[in-house]
């Protein structure tokens, strides 16, 4: 019961037969969506980004554990997560940065690049939504520090067409690090 309440709705599987080929119109449209999204976020156009979200958004980043090879499928924990968000809480995160003078964790803002690669797009059975898998390498430069915080992850998204445009309905972020190597996830992945 608690597990059901805590865990996000399971994502539909990525079925090989449902793969939408690279270079097709739909694939290109998805790619443009991801690139444009990265550009908005990198340039702090957060209000604009929030308009890409559906009202039933689920946005999560599970914890990870170091376990043996045979337990590889048990390395994710989806009850307590690093991010466990819905539409309202994502809007609050945006508002904290856009509407206050004291979102110190990102003010002054980090300089960030969201490098999006390895994009794969799948049709979902019995649905018009698209499942999109991508790799993201987020590089974060903060203050005058001479190092970058790197946040490599895989994203599993559900994109839905609303009023003709693609919107983000689900995102699960699978982080590589067990111990996150940046002082906070005050940035949007």
């Amino acid at each position: 019961m608690l597990q059901q309440l805590l865990e996000p709705t399971p994502l539909p599987p990525s079925i090989k037969a449902n793969r939408i080929p690279s270079g097709s119109d739909t694939y290109n449209e998805v790619l443009d969506f991801l690139y444009d999204e990265a550009e908005m976020l990198d340039n702090l156009r957060l209000g604009e980004w929030a308009e890409l979200l559906t009202k039933d958004l689920e946005y999560n980043a599970p914890l990870r554990h170091t376990r043996s090879t045979s337990q590889f499928d048990q390395t994710y924990s989806r009850n307590v997560q690093h991010l466990h968000e819905n539409y309202g809480s994502m809007l609050m995160r945006v508002k904290r940065i856009t509407d206050t003078k004291s979102a110190w964790g990102e003010d002054p803002p980090s300089r960030i690049k969201r490098l999006v690669t390895n994009v794969r797009v799948y049709r979902i059975d019995d649905s018009d939504d698209l499942k999109v898998e991508s790799y993201l390498l987020l590089t974060r430069s903060r203050f005058d520090f001479d190092y970058f915080d790197l946040i490599p992850c895989v994203r599993h998204d559900i994109l839905r067409r609303e009023d003709g445009a693609l919107k983000l309905a689900r995102r699960e972020i699978l982080l590589d690090q067990v111990v996150i190597g940046t002082p906070n996830l005050g940035v949007i992945l």
Binding site: L2, L6, L63, H65, S77, N79, V80, Q81, H82, V178, V179, I180, G181, T182, P183, N184, L185
Partner: peptide
């Protein structure tokens, strides 16, 4: 309610 979050 689950394992702890960890970050550096």
């Amino acid at each position: 309610l689950g394992p702890p979050q960890r970050f550096t």
